[in-house]
Nucleic acid binder design. Structure first.
Lengths: 213, 213
DNA sequence: ACGCTAGGTTAACCCCGCTAGTATACTTAT
DNA sequence: ATAAGTATACTAGCGGGGTTAACCTAGCGT
C-alpha cells in the first residue's frame, strides 16, 4: 500500500511541521503562477495540476483556498502591486501632468497585454467567478487606482482638467481597459501598429478631458 | 428496451424528415438562446442541457456544430445584426455628425450591458475559445463596424475630425468596449450614475477627436 | 508514554465535452 | 412491392474537471 505512482506523479512532498501549514499555501501559489506563465493558459491551472506540481493531493488545496476562483485570484494578486509600480514609474517620466497621465495609460495597456492571462483573470471574468473582494474592495482600494485618482485630482486642481476626479478617473480606466481587453480577446484582428493605436487612444482621450480655453 | 427515462428527461423529439435535418439546428439554437437568456449564465448552456431541452441526445448536437464554442457563437450571432440596428437607429437620432456619433456610442454600451452574456461571448472570450471567424472576419465585416467607419469617414471628410478613419474607429470601439466590458465584469463596483458616466465617456472621447479650431 | 490536533490522504460523486460505433426510418431505384 | 442506401439520430463510454466526506498519522504538549 505504498503508493503505486499510477500516472507519473511528481515526488511526494514532505509534510510540513506543526505551525508551518502556511508553507503549503505559498508553494501552491508558486506552482500555480508557474503553471499560468509557462502554459500561458488559465485552463492549465487546474486544482489537480497544481496539486500534482506541488506533490500533494487535490483536496489539500482546499485547506488554503475556498475554491478554484480564490486560488486563481490569489495567484494574480501580486500583479496588482506590480501594475501600480509600473504605472507610477511611467507617470514619473514627465513633469507635464497631462503627458504624465498619458504615460500612465500607455503603461497600463502595455502591462495588460504583456500579462494577458493575469489581466483576464483580474478584470475580465464574469462576476460569478470573481471573489467578492475583487469585485469591489480590492479594486477600489488598489494602489494603482488610488494613484490615478490623485493624479487626476491634481489635474483638476491646477485647472488642466474640468470635472469630477472620480468620474474622470473611472472614465480613463474604462478607456485603457477597453483597448487592453480587446487586444487580449482578439489578438488575431488586423490591428494597426500597436504603438500608434495605443498612443492615439491615450492622447485623444486626454485631449478630450483637457480644459481647453 | 423502450427508454427508461432515468433522470427526468423531456419529451422525445420526433425525428426530422429527410432533407429537414436543418430543423434540428434551428431548434438547438432556439433552446440554447432561451437557456442563455433565462438563466443569464453562459455556463448553463451545456451541450447536455441544450440537447435535453430540445429532446435529443447530446451527440446529436455535433451533427450541426463542431464544438461547444461554435454553438455558443452561433447562438449569439443574431446579436451582431441587432447591435447594428440599435446603433444605426441611435445614430439617426441627430443630424449633427458628432452628436450622432456620441449617440452611437451610448447605444452600443447600453446594448452591451442589456445583453451581458451575449456580449461576453462575442467580445470577451479568450482567443482559444473563439472560432477563427469571430476573431477576424465576422468582426471586421460586421455591419455595425462598417457603419461606424463610414460615419467616422464622413466626419473626417467634413473636417470635423482629424486622423485616419480606421484608426479613429478602432479607438472609438475600444472606448465603448472598455466601459461596457468593465460594467459587465464588475457590476458590484460602486459606479457613479450610469447615465452620467456613459455620457461623460462618450462626450469627452469625441471632444478629444474633434478638430477644434 | 499517550493522547490531541494540525496537516494531510482516500475514495468517491456528479457534471462536463466529446467520440466511435450502431440503429432506424425515409426515399429512391429496380 | 421490395431492396438498397443514406440522412438522422442514438448507445455507451472515455477522460477530465471541481468538490466533499471520511479517514489517517506524525509529532508536539503534557
Amino acid at each position: 500500500m505504498t503508493r503505486a505512482n499510477t500516472t507519473s506523479s511528481s515526488p511526494r512532498r514532505t509534510r510540513a511541521r506543526r505551525g508551518e501549514g502556511e508553507k503549503l499555501r505559498e508553494q501552491i501559489l508558486e506552482a500555480g503562477e508557474r503553471l499560468l506563465i509557462e502554459t500561458g493558459d488559465e485552463e492549465a491551472v487546474t486544482i489537480r495540476a497544481v496539486a500534482e506540481a506541488v506533490g500533494v493531493t487535490p483536496p489539500s488545496v482546499y485547506l488554503h483556498f475556498a475554491d478554484k476562483d480564490e486560488l486563481l485570484f490569489a495567484i494574480c494578486e501580486r500583479h496588482f502591486a506590480q501594475l501600480d509600480r509600473v504605472t507610477e514609474e511611467a507617470a514619473a517620466g514627465s513633469d507635464d501632468l497631462l503627458e504624465s497621465l498619458a504615460r500612465r495609460g500607455r503603461a497600463y495597456i502595455r502591462f495588460g497585454i504583456e500579462h494577458p492571462e493575469q489581466y483576464r483573470i483580474l478584470f475580465m471574468r464574469p462576476p460569478s467567478h470573481t471573489p467578492e473582494s475583487f469585485q469591489v474592495d480590492r479594486l477600489r482600494d488598489a494602489a494603482a487606482f488610488g494613484h490615478l485618482v490623485e493624479h487626476v485630482s491634481k489635474c483638476v486642481q491646477t485647472g488642466l482638467i474640468d470635472g469630477d476626479p472620480l468620474l474622470v478617473s473611472l472614465g480613463l480606466w474604462a478607456v485603457v481597459h477597453g483597448l487592453t481587453s480587446l487586444l487580449i480577446s482578439k489578438p488575431e484582428f488586423p490591428w494597426p501598429d500597436l504603438d500608434v493605436m495605443i498612443d492615439h487612444v491615450c492622447r485623444t482621450t486626454i485631449r478630450g478631458l483637457a480644459d481647453s480655453p
